[in-house]
Write a protein that binds this DNA or RNA. Sequence first.
RNA 1: GGACGAUUAGCUCAGUUGGUUAGAGCGCUACCUUGACAUGGUAGAGGUCAGAGGUUCGAAUCCUCUAUCGUCCACCA
Length: 907
Amino acid sequence: MSDRSVHANLEKTYDHHDVERRWSSARWEPLGIHEAESSRVLDEGREPYTVLMPPPNVTGSLTLGHVLNHTLQDIFIRYNRMSGREALWLPGTDHAGIATQTVVEKKLRGEGVSRHDLGRKAFLEHVWVWRNEYGDLILRQLRRLGISCDWRRNLFTMDESASRAVLHAFVKLYRDGLIYRGKRIINWCPVSQTALSDEEVIMKSRKDKLVYVRYPLAKRPGEFVTIATVRPETILADVAIAVNPKDPRYADLVGELAIVPLAGRHVPVIADDYVDIEFGTGALKITPAHDPNDYEVAGRHNLPVLSVIGKDGRMTDDLGYAGMDRFDAREKIIADLEERGALVKVEEYEHKVGYSERADVVVEPYLSEQWFVSMKPLAEKALRVVNEGDIRFHPSHWISTYRHWMENIRDWCISRQLWWGHRIPAWYDGEGKVWVAESYEEACHLAGTDKLVQDEDVLDTWFSSWLWPLTTLGWTGEREQNDDLRAFYPTNTLVTAPDIIFFWVARMIMAGLYFRGDVPFRDVYFTSIIRDMKGRKLSKSLGNSPDPLKVMDSYGTDALRFTIVHIAPLGQDVLFGEEKCEFGRNFATKIWNAARLVFMLRRKVFAVPQDFDGMYGGFDSAAVDLSDSQRWVLGRYHAMLQAYHQAFAQFRMNDIARVVYEFFRSDYCDWYLETLKVELSVLEANGEKAREAVCLALHILEGVLKVLHPLMPFITEEIWHHVVPRDEEASIARSSMPQPDGRFTGEGAERFDSVRKIISEARSLRAVFGVPHDMPAPLVNRVSDDTLKPLFASNTHIIVTMTNSSDFKVAGEELLSPPPHSASSVVDGNELFMPLEGLISFDKESARLEKEIGAMETYVNRLEKKLSNKGFVDNAPGEVVRKERRKLEEARTDLAKLRANLDVLAT
RNA sequence: GGACGAUUAGCUCAGUUGGUUAGAGCGCUACCUUGACAUGGUAGAGGUCAGAGGUUCGAAUCCUCUAUCGUCCACCA
């Protein structure tokens, strides 16, 4: 904690546990940084900035995916908050119908109870107890990430207000004719025993047997038609054999009757375009109850529908297989077919099969009565807003995926045969007539009776999720108009994984447009998918999924946040191993130590702390007479700010991390702070110049802390409180973002660049010739332009100290020949000589120079060739040509100097 | 079968509208335990930018094809 009487330094060693404990969200929350107010937006005309948190499943625990996702959201929120906007981040959790019901059922099964034993009401009570006990685990874990969402507005999709919104949405869609009930073949999960939407089915490659079966023809003894099938168990439910009408092989068979093996039923041979002539035998069995295509074919030909597989995936036939699992029945039937001589052959066959997303079992096409949403009318508008740029995707290539889905959209099966979820607001009267209303009373009123029975099913979880942008802002119905909605809708940025673009993103766009007439958000940022170092998806079963809490423990939350953002570029997957967090940890340590240095220097220069408070409070870097190094570092600092803000505008999140990292490490620490030490050593300790220099160092440090704060909230908060004494209630999160200022460029900055190069070159010469590190050597710099002499001379002390030279002389052309026994180098037209009698051998140095000359000759040749190319000179922009000419000129000069120095060496 | 993305140093990746002698981190080599920091500093080695064509005065960057990897979509049993 900052000591207000003296300038307390930071602890010697950086301890992230300590810092994180001090600035936990418990500490931040009372500071009010999470709490955005609609009144401020509406009354004061402040610009709102809203982020919608994808609600994690209540059953979930923190994964690296969450870490990336929520860190990015927090970065957007903190950045915009510090940029003066009213920043609102809306958190919540999702009831996750199937996942949660499965978890609770499993727990009950462990206690020997099934949900059916309990009944619906008692079971749901169990689920609520479970949710209240474990359901917020993920939110507690998320808090450790330091995310600054508005926890007061935390919403659960089963909360009363959200549930009212769901009922309202269902009823409105129904009355508008966009929700209907119908008998269809849907995806059925035999484990969860519920219908699934198409999106909840994962296609996986799988090896099965392609079974060729002979069907005898009833009226042509001894003749057969052979079909190929991967699902022989459904033979029992065959109602026809289909061939292509254009297939000459079967032309005479159409209209015949075939006998279904094992079942003995007579079924017609029909002709339908659906059949592919090329595949298998060109003849196809039609099983309408167990295949969506067959169902359509059967519809066209008025065929009956027979079913032999039940809800639990077991056979229901009356031919002796009843009760067997569908896969066991498959094997048995293949064996039985063979025994009866109906089996022609069996081939290995690899194909794609749909699996249930949650239960990971093969879904069963199942004919049943379900509720659907007509998607086409909704999709048209939702497609338009993305096509026209009202909603922007980052990266934009997801638009084509989105477009493709929207253009081929199919109706959404929204009923689930579960108990945990929003129960469908539909009631049936004694005659089976359906009444849809927001309440039982209303339904009774409509039906004119109070003898109604509610639909047993609940809605797909995503039916509440697609209302999330509305419900999080308190929307419960169409006419509702509250301040939050007026102030914060549409929201600004949605950060989400690309795998839920259809489940969620697309549907939220539809719902926003439909229920409120406006898009739900402006920008969608699709995060990277995190994989392990071998490129595999993270999964619990592979055991390759590091526990983020452990990573935070060992490396620090800031380190994890910084690292994961740094390695997650827009639109690319990232390979993550927790060792990578060393990068962020090392950076955090570096920041800490650099701050310690600057604070130490401050104490040296300001013996009386109040002097510093007074001076720093009104410090203006533009008003100071700047040294070369100061002008240079300010120029670099503002260039960094420029790139930083631009990266935000372009959603290039890894650039944000990179740009600050590079400035801070290379420019600020390695060059500026090192130079500052030297500069201070020659300035009077309490003098004005020294004080200004320290204030400038702190000014830039503070700026870096601010731009880093969205990425590394803990450490920046801690150090910021030490820059100047701050009130306990102050937070860097409420400070304002530094803005770029283009004034800090020009001569001094360029000169310091040359100084840096001279220093590097001199160090390089020392290393090459093995000058002992503690042996000072003289250094001579020959400049061709005498006016430069005093300018370099003004940096003499810096150069001497930083290269451990005994002396640094700046000479003009009057230095006719280089000092004897010198190593030499040419940098930016300056010739550098390092007299090294005894250490330097003629052979070694001439070989080195020759190599250098060779490289320079190649370079000069290349430039000459380029510039003698008429096409280049005529076509390239003048600026580019001029630049190349300048380069050539400089290279030729340098080359000449190198050659001359080699000659001198030889004499 | 369609669509999209990737391929740059040993490893992981930057390289924004075509114009720098192609960069960083990790790893590696040498030197440095100097009062911010060895979770560090200084200096260095290491790349014909997947391959082949093309457009252009000029290509890692744009186009075409090929190869390899990955993702999403799709009702051929």
